[in-house]
Nucleic acid binder design. Structure first.
Length: 258
DNA sequence: ATGTCTCAGGGACTGAGA
């Protein structure tokens, strides 16, 4: 089973690149973030013709998440269903009906802006809502994969310049504590587990020659529940996709398990 | 140089968000 996550930064601007990537890598399941499209305008036929079933949760202009699967998707949920008034489309889940079914979730965690903006407390509160949601659902779901753009660099090894970033948004103690809360709920972050000392990144700023200078951060992650984590055979970042014409500012992250 | 992108609105460019 091959699963992947990619912040695509606009499906309209990137569907050709995505189609080529899917043809080359053939993941069973893909989570997208920042589709920046309403559901009605999502170019689904392109991907259905490659054999994928789609579930999208979009909004106009910003944010938006999607699930692609070569196996049927059941019981799609959008948002956290907690009654909060939140118009931002950032979380979608579904059950992948493979031989051994599992729950999959695509998360686009808030960026947070700067420490003094109102986007920062929104980010922290959003994480708390996600943690409550995961806690409430985890026994019912069994095996699960949670993937996405978490907008948190969990440790200094995940940041090109920890001195400069320490205490800034994506690297504060409050954010890292919440990110670690996912692990406290029994999920394991696969890339770091497979590569304990690798300081690879998943995102590089378009500005200031971020990618050529490798000034990036590892903020896109794949978490799985215990049983799946024990069956993982590989986890890697596809840096190639950050190259060439009109890349996203994020590279895909891929995991394989038996 | 806040040095690059995407998208929306409105029909060339500006603003927002990342």
């Amino acid at each position: 089973m091959k699963v992947a996550t990619w912040n695509i930064n606009g499906i309209k601007a990137r569907h050709d690149r995505l189609r080529a990537w899917l043809s080359a890598h053939e993941p069973d399941v893909l989570c997208l973030q920042e589709i920046k499209s309403i559901d009605e305008a999502f170019p689904g036929e392109v991907f259905e013709s490659l054999g994928y079933r789609l579930a999208t949760y979009g909004q106009k202009g910003y944010n938006g998440v999607a699930l692609f699967s070569r196996h049927p998707l059941e019981d799609v949920t959008r948002g956290f269903e907690d009654g909060e008034d939140d118009e931002q489309a950032r979380f979608i889940g579904a059950t992948v009906m493979a031989d051994r079914p599992f729950r999959v979730m695509s998360a686009y965690c808030p960026n947070g802006g700067s420490l003094d903006s109102d986007k920062y407390p929104y980010k922290l509160a959003w994480y708390d809502r996600m943690l409550r949601f995961l806690d409430k659902k985890r026994t019912a779901w069994g095996d699960a994969v949670l993937m996405g753009d978490f907008n948190v660099a969990p440790a200094d090894i995940d940041v090109h310049d920890p001195e400069a970033w320490c205490g800034q948004v994506s690297c504060t103690a409050a954010e890292r504590q919440r990110w670690e809360g996912i692990g406290a709920l029994g999920m394991r972050e696969i890339f770091r587990e497979m590569h304990p000392d690798d300081s690879s990144y998943t995102w590089w700023d378009y500005r200031q020659l971020g990618f050529p200078k490798n000034k990036g951060m590892r903020i896109d992650h794949i978490f799985t529940t215990q049983n799946l984590a024990d069956r993982v055979t590989a986890c890697y970042i596809d840096r190639q996709e950050r190259k060439g014409k009109k890349p996203s500012d994020h590279a895909p992250v891929v995991a394989e398990f038996d």
